[in-house]
Simulated scan of single mutants.
Amino acid sequence: MLIGELSRRTGVSSRLLRYYEAQGLLDARRGPNGYRDYAEDSVVTVRQVRALLDAGLTTEVIRSVLPCTRGEELRFDWCAELRSLLDRELTAMDERISTLRHSRDTLFGYLAQP
């Protein structure tokens, strides 16, 4: 399928689809006319990428996670490396949340001053 069709079926812009391809998250063959040609399973891949982005993962991490995903419901084929990677990501998110809470409390304190 061409990029416009993939965009229509996934609700993701053509620009983002090209970005996913550049990041190594999505594969496309090139036809003789130079147009991108996506396989049918690209729809599922794009939906998986979107779900992983919504979970706060970077495209670099997603590139490592995608080979272990299956289905539109985003299920994983668990291995020690994948669990370890996602555990590290979760720890990093918790640290960022803690830092944001501290910053928020500090700013709130400034605003509470008379």
Rank of each mutant, 00 (worst) to 15 (best):
S14Q: 14
R18D: 03
Q23L: 11
L16Y: 09
S7P: 07
D41F: 06
R88F: 09
E81S: 14
L85M: 03
R50P: 00
Y38G: 07
D77T: 11
D94G: 11
V49C: 07
D41K: 09
Y20A: 02
L111G: 04
L74D: 12
S84P: 15
C79K: 11
R18M: 03
E72P: 00
G34I: 02
G31T: 15
L57W: 13
G109D: 04
A51H: 00
S98A: 14
L16P: 00
A112Y: 08
E89G: 00
L2D: 13
Y19C: 07
D54A: 13
G31P: 00
A28E: 05
T91E: 14
E89K: 08
G24V: 09
R8T: 08
D37M: 13
A22K: 14
L82E: 03
Y35N: 08
S98G: 09
M1K: 04
D54E: 11
V12I: 13
R30S: 01
G31I: 07
V44S: 03
E95S: 05
R9I: 00
Y20P: 00
E72Y: 02
S103R: 14
R9F: 00
S98M: 01
H102Y: 09
Q23S: 10
L86Q: 06
D94F: 09
S7T: 03
R9V: 00
L100W: 13
T45D: 08
S42A: 14
Y35P: 07
L2G: 10
I97S: 00
Q23D: 02
P114Q: 12
E95Q: 05
S7M: 06
T91C: 12
A22R: 13
S64H: 12
R75E: 14
Y38F: 14
V43G: 02
R50T: 10
A80W: 12
S84A: 13
P114I: 10
R83H: 15
R63C: 04
T10H: 11
R8D: 14
A39I: 02
